[in-house]
């Protein structure tokens, strides 16, 4: 298996790994696919309609962890609607994710969509 320098960098120095300190105005959701051996929990903090911060916890292969880091890193500063408009294809290209692993990154989309649903309920 080949890994891009971007995957290696994010594995070594993840930018958004962990949990947000403030629970105020935040929502979190998880998604998993046991057959693919991946799990992710995404937590976002909103101020009005804007995502001000985002973090994740994840279990899986290097491409999955790097994908979560790449996708979640781009959420801060975006409108909440961005949670349902994730550019997984861009992540696949940026990280050079092999075709057989693209399905794993869709699990991150699921977690973000679940997050968005929780936010819309609480709004």
């Amino acid at each position: 298996m080949e890994y891009s320098s971007e995957v290696r960098r994010r594995l070594e120095r993840p930018s958004c790994r962990g949990v947000l300190a403030s629970a105020v105005g935040s929502a979190s959701a998880t998604a998993e696919d046991r057959s693919l051996n991946v799990w992710v929990r995404v937590q976002v903090e909103v101020d009005g309609e804007t995502l001000v911060a985002a973090r994740y916890d994840a279990y899986g292969c290097p491409h999955f962890l790097a994908g979560a880091d790449w996708i979640v890193e781009r959420l801060a500063g975006q409108p909440a609607a961005a949670l349902t408009e994730v550019a997984t294809g861009d992540a696949v290209a940026a990280l050079d994710v092999p075709t057989e692993k693209i399905g794993k990154l869709l699990v991150i989309e699921d977690a973000l969509a679940a997050c968005a649903a929780k936010l819309s309920v609480s709004a």
């Binding site: 993840p14 790994r17 949990v19 046991r34 799990w39 929990r41 916890d57 994840a58 279990y59 962890l65």
Partner: peptide, 11 residues
């Protein structure tokens, strides 16, 4: 291990 500090038991 820091990537999955709150992972469920099946992991």
């Amino acid at each position: 291990s820091g990537f999955a500090s709150s992972a469920p038991s099946w992991c």
